[in-house]
Design a protein around this nucleic acid. Sequence first.
DNA 1: AAAGTCCGCAACCGCAAGAGT
DNA 2: AACTCTTGCGGTTGCGGACTT
Length: 330
Amino acid sequence: MGKGRAPCCDKNQVKRGPWSPAEDLRLINFIQNYGHDNWRALPKQAGLLRCGKSCRLRWINYLRPDVKRGNFTPDEEETIIKLHKTWGNKWSKIASRLPGRTDNEIKNVWNTHLKKRLLKTTTTKDCNEPKESPTTSSSSSSSLRPSNETQDLETERPNKTNSVNNDLFCLEQQTTSSLSSNTSNSNSSSQVDKVWPQNHLDFGEEVEKKKENKQIRSELELELELELESIEIPLEWDKDFWNILDLEDIDLFGSNEVDQYYCQASNFEAEKRQEFENDKWFKYLENELGLEADGCTGLDDVTAAERLLMDDVDPCMAYFADGLTQQLQS
DNA sequence: AAAGTCCGCAACCGCAAGAGT
DNA sequence: AACTCTTGCGGTTGCGGACTT
């Protein structure tokens, strides 16, 4: 082979920049139905004009159901500081100890808040306290990364100077590792339910069961079909509907590329009816994206089967439209 | 009110590791 | 063993909103 690596994708052929809500939903819908065994192939299969890497990142850092949004708690910040002392810039490792937090998020928090804060407190300390011994000062300064020169030390620290500390810490964490392993972030496998939050595990299992039991699924789909017939919203995952929804992508999807990519995704069209089962997922997503519809809070442990029997099932498309409207208005 | 600056965060990039052939 | 492909990681960038002048 020639020197260098082939690019992960043709950058002229893919969309870049911020993700639109429609792209998000398309990605979520696909992953929830089919998982993400192959990130590289996923965009094509899902009908997304993105590279696999971008999809993966978007999923891991933002769309995964167990991603915790909002500010870091003081406890979490403490943990980050502590772990950074031990491991340095091993963000994914640190993230594995903070369920629901991503390496990217932690990295950002460190760079924007914690580093500065520590620098500040240490500076204050230096002014008020007598100088520490060389050994202790080296460990405390390791938590500060104001310049590049300290970054070189970082990579060595966990292996050498703090190896004992590291081992102790690992031992200490073993008790909690079983907990965090359920939601370990960046190390998540290709199976969606492995990263599903505890309170959504039953839903993840449902998805598995559905796949095993096509008969039940057919029945559910039939029920959905009947239900959807009475609702005056776009029911198809067709390009027109996506064009309506995806205002930001009108240009993108306004060309022949639409047909091309839509056709590539059309293999999955046959199963689109099961999307009603994603209703819960979309509700969850709305919470995550801050698009929560009024009166509709979490998914709790209502099963899909139970929901079918409920009279007030909200169609997922209504959520799309509602959420998008809210977001576009804001 | 407008312009300039700062800050936070999402996304991108390139490299490395590991698995598969 | 050599090569290819995919995924994961850490550093960096750039956009957009908040804040200041």
